[in-house]
């Protein structure tokens, strides 16, 4: 079946694919990809799983923390791809070229995010296989539907976090690049990666309640025998994720405008 996307939509799609293609090209050329995709995630799952075995945790408790560990790698890989879309240009001092072109930040973030989703799916599949082989964890136990919702929640959270990282880079320059790696750790610590958010101190628990991933983890873990802590977690998590994706894009647009005003956009290209 042939299809044509005309006019404005066609231009939108082409600009999005430009960033997706570039991220793919760079990913295939990046020697650290092996570490990002294979080494660290696998080491993480094996380490956490073996700790659970040593502590003689029940299969349910082991599943609980393995879900957190797998979510961590999935979100981390996805959000890094979007951050890379800006960082590649910051590192090579070529930021100004893409902002000279008639594109919006949505093209950059969407294109890179699509590649991020692809990479995070590879990571999730691989980690689920490792966790099943080594610890008997069944990622499909909840069924395809809940799993798809969980992965969508991970991707949306990664998108919002990564666009905020891009915003910070556009406001502060290359010195904000550590945020690309630090932010996801911070968010997942709050979202209850290895524990229920009920154990968090009250003010921190309030912060956790503002993070969409908290709800997606809660909903997915409910299928493994843990009572849900939130009512309608998917609805709240989805609404929060979409809100943050919108807000982070607004902030990124404002940051680019600020960089055009302050001259940082040019400074990052010198």
């Amino acid at each position: 079946m042939s299809w044509r996307v005309e006019g404005r939509w066609r231009t939108e799609v082409i600009a999005v694919t430009a960033f997706a293609r570039r991220n793919l090209q760079m990913a295939l050329r990046n020697v650290f990809l092996l570490f990002e995709l294979l080494f660290w995630p696998v080491v993480g799952v094996l380490g956490i799983g073996l700790m659970a075995r040593f502590l003689e945790l029940s299969p349910e408790a082991t599943s609980f923390i393995l879900i957190g560990q797998i979510a961590f790698s999935t979100v981390s890989v996805c959000q890094l791809d979007v951050a890379y879309a800006v960082l590649y240009d910051v590192w090579s001092k070529s930021v100004k070229h893409q902002f000279l072109a008639p594109i919006g930040v949505r093209h950059l973030t969407t294109g890179a995010w699509l590649v991020g989703i692809l990479r995070s799916l590879v990571v999730f599949t691989m980690l689920s296989a490792v966790a099943w082989w080594a610890f008997g964890f069944d990622a499909l136990h909840a069924g395809v539907g809940p799993l798809a919702v969980f992965l969508a929640g991970c991707s949306l959270t990664a998108w919002a976090v990564s666009v905020l990282v891009c915003t910070l880079i556009m406001l502060l320059g290359a010195k904000a690049e550590t945020a690309a790696w630090a932010s996801v750790n911070f968010v997942l610590t709050l979202a209850g990666i290895y524990y229920s958010v009920a154990v968090l101190p009250k003010p921190v628990a309030a912060l956790a309640a503002a993070i969409p991933l908290t709800y997606f983890l809660d909903a997915y873990r409910a299928h493994y025998g843990f009572p849900a802590e939130f009512a309608r977690p998917i609805l709240i998590g989805g609404a929060l994720a979409l809100l943050y994706v919108g807000l982070s894009h607004w902030a990124f647009v404002a940051a680019v405008r600020s960089a055009r005003r302050s001259g940082l956009l040019l400074k990052m290209s010198e």
Partner: peptide, 25 residues
């Protein structure tokens, strides 16, 4: 004169990338 592009990319990939940003395909 002091332009720079993503270091690991090749000239035809760089031109392809920017061409797409201007709506070419």
């Amino acid at each position: 004169g002091n332009a720079s592009f993503v270091w690991a990319m090749k000239p035809d990939e760089i031109l392809d990338f920017y061409g797409r940003l201007y709506g070419l395909s």
